[in-house]
């Protein structure tokens, strides 16, 4: 009896994890621009990987491997927002406008618009803030 409940729980958790991974993939394809896609890409990590790993932990039972599974989850949760933030920050630094409901431009057009706005045609667009300082100087001094 206990065994059946456990197997059912594992199946449910893994299926739910798969569901959120599917949603996340759909979102990356469906949503309009880079910022919106960064939202949903992190879903695959949080609930997708989270629920699947919870299923794994349940399947393995109490032991060192389960503890490691939980640690794995902790690190996914710590690194996932960092990656999503890095992507959106890079997009913002490039000057890419977020898409809004009354905007009829596509993702590519928004990107091209940002490139066109940079004076040198986006050649050195990816300047980090530390590199900004000498770059700024060249123009003013």
């Amino acid at each position: 009896m206990i065994e059946t409940v456990r197997t059912g729980g594992i199946v449910l958790l893994v299926l739910a994890g798969l569901f959120f991974t599917l949603v996340s993939t759909t979102g990356v394809l469906r949503l309009p621009d880079v910022y919106s896609r960064a939202h949903t890409a992190s879903q695959a990590d949080t609930l997708g990987a989270g629920l699947t790993l919870a299923g794994v932990a349940l399947a393995l039972g109490w032991g060192t491997t389960t503890v490691k599974t939980v640690l794995l989850l902790v690190f996914v949760f710590a690194t996932n927002p960092t990656a999503a933030h890095a992507i959106s920050r890079a997009a913002h630094e490039e000057g890419i406008e977020p898409w809004t409901a009354d905007d009829d431009r596509t993702d590519e057009e928004l990107y091209e618009a940002a490139r066109a706005r940079v004076p040198d045609g986006g050649q050195s667009g990816g300047n980090t803030t530390t590199a900004d300082e000498p770059g700024e100087q060249e123009e003013t001094g």
Partner: peptide, 15 residues
């Protein structure tokens, strides 16, 4: 706070 905002889908810290 910024990481928590990013972890919850629907909100994303940009800068």
């Amino acid at each position: 706070l910024a990481n928590s905002i990013t972890l919850t889908p629907g909100t994303l810290s940009v800068r």
